[in-house]
Simulated scan of single mutants.
Amino acid sequence: MNPDSRHLESVLHSDIPLTREMGVEVLDWQDRCLRLRLPLAANVNHKSTMFGGSLYCAAVLAGWGWLHLRLRELGVDDGHIVIQEGQLSYPLPVTGAAIAQCLPPEDKVWERFIATYQRRGRARLTLRTQVFNAGSEAPAVNFSGQFVLHR
């Protein structure tokens, strides 16, 4: 685990205590891609699959964490990140550990987001995350969330 990953896991566990109970681990932050892991045991439902609410949290946390780390790289530390809106689909059940992944938006979208924040002190960014069964390439969850950064 690199220092950025350790930092984010510490922030999540201290600022959002639920993440500790869910067993959220930051797997890695590489090439502007964030990956989190959730164990099934702490997030199981009555069907012995992962609880939908835990999957929603994983998707939101991957986006929130991505934005937190990306802003940290730029030295932007005067803002607060909140989720404003999210849409989610569950095409497959998660039957074991879950891997939540957030990839970067297009450079042009990111640059506009940062410029808007610097100018107005508030900006919105849509991030897409997916959650997979560990070891699978087929997404079990597709999420699109609008995050707001404000001073």
Results as ranks from 00 to 15, higher is better:
S5C: 13
R6G: 03
H7C: 04
E9N: 05
S10R: 12
S10H: 13
L12K: 03
H13F: 11
H13S: 11
H13E: 12
E21Q: 15
M22F: 05
G23H: 01
V24C: 14
V26S: 11
V26I: 11
L27G: 00
Q30H: 12
R32C: 10
R32N: 15
R35Q: 15
L36P: 06
R37G: 11
R37K: 14
L38S: 03
L38M: 13
P39I: 08
A41I: 11
A41L: 12
N43W: 10
H46E: 14
T49F: 02
M50S: 06
L55E: 00
L55M: 10
A59T: 07
A59Y: 06
V60Y: 01
V60M: 12
L61M: 14
G63A: 10
G63F: 03
G65I: 02
W66T: 09
L67M: 15
R70N: 08
E73D: 13
D77P: 04
D78S: 13
D78M: 06
I81W: 04
I81M: 10
V82E: 07
E85K: 12
E85T: 08
G86E: 14
Q87I: 00
L88T: 14
L88I: 15
Y90K: 05
P91H: 06
P91W: 04
L92T: 07
P93A: 00
V94P: 08
G96A: 13
A98C: 04
I99E: 08
A100D: 06
Q101P: 00
C102V: 07
L103Y: 06
P104G: 05
P104R: 02
P105N: 07
K108H: 11
V109F: 01
W110L: 03
F113T: 05
F113Q: 04
I114W: 04
A115V: 07
A115R: 05
A115Q: 07
Y117D: 07
Y117T: 14
Q118Y: 02
G121E: 01
G121Y: 00
G121P: 00
R122W: 01
A123N: 08
L125G: 12
L127Y: 01
R128L: 05
F132D: 06
N133Y: 02
A134S: 09
E137Q: 15
A138L: 15
A140K: 01
V141W: 02
N142M: 13
N142G: 04
